[in-house]
Design a binder for these strands. Structure first.
Lengths: 141, 141
DNA sequence: TAACTAATGCAATTCTGTTGCATTTTAATT
DNA sequence: AATTAAAATGCAACAGAATTGCATTAGTTA
């Protein structure tokens, strides 16, 4: 059950609204793409907030723990964060410039053609990973 | 163009065969699942080879650079390595015990049912990421 | 076996992310 | 507005993963 990331829902759940939190919420809500730690740092600086990295890490952890954002692991070995209440979707990662775009439909077999036609993105490779419970763990529950 | 990972193909391409390389090749060829750095270290130790971590990191890098193995990034924030000439496949990662299994068919829409029936694995979540060239980079080529 | 180059070990270093602790800020209460 | 308790912050130190520099050792070819 993911919660909407808004200042009022944060307040409603008893969390404090600080300058940093306020700005970070804004970035995530306004961004259509996953943000890295560095992206967030940079955005804060551009907003005139020169906060310590510890604070940003802690704030990301806070938003993660309360389910407001989710982690996304993308090549090459990079962690991103995005709103967790987004509609189920996947990412288009450009291997040249690193730009990230979202994609909502995910019928894998049709995708290569469709994505090229609709987004102009040429899929070269994709990863699809499943997480859940293996038969052993399912039995032991 | 991936190259087969065998001692003779390594030799053919002018690479030396060391004890460590020999063992690591064996692990990758014999393993049906992705191996982490730690898995490799442990396997080497079990084979009586007490090598420095630097050597293992360098050997993984070597095998990666020459395209013999590929990296796989899996939750939670972990890097694995597997033969790169494997048939296109995906992974089943148990969120409880961490066990990893491979899956070859990838028709996403049928998967949840099929995987549960065939592998007894209950999919709770999956990630599907695409890598390639965005329209901008495609034009600039 | 000699000689060249690649591979190795070790220590030091970088990079990412975390922790402990003293201080400041938020927001509820008086 | 002043008080207070808890949460947030900054800073420095730390932890862990991975990398680098350099001296030494081992693999391969002639």
């Amino acid at each position: 059950m993911d919660t909407d990331l808004t200042l009022s829902s944060l307040r409603d759940e008893g969390h404090r609204i600080t300058r940093v939190r306020e700005e970070m919420v804004k970035f995530f809500v306004e961004s259509s793409k996953p943000l890295s730690f560095g992206d967030v740092m940079r955005a804060l600086e551009e907003a005139g907030l020169f906060v310590n990295k510890t604070t940003v890490y802690r704030e990301l952890k806070f938003l993660l723990e309360y389910g407001y954002i989710a982690e996304v692991y993308l090549y090459p070995r990079k962690v991103y964060y995005e709103l967790s209440d987004l509609r189920h979707h996947h990412h288009l990662v450009c291997e040249k410039c690193g730009k990230i775009d979202n994609i909502i439909n995910c019928l894998v077999d049709r995708l290569e053609r469709d994505v090229l036609k609709r987004k102009g993105f040429k899929i070269k490779r994709h990863t699809l990973e499943f997480y859940g419970l293996c038969s052993d763990c399912l039995e032991r529950d």
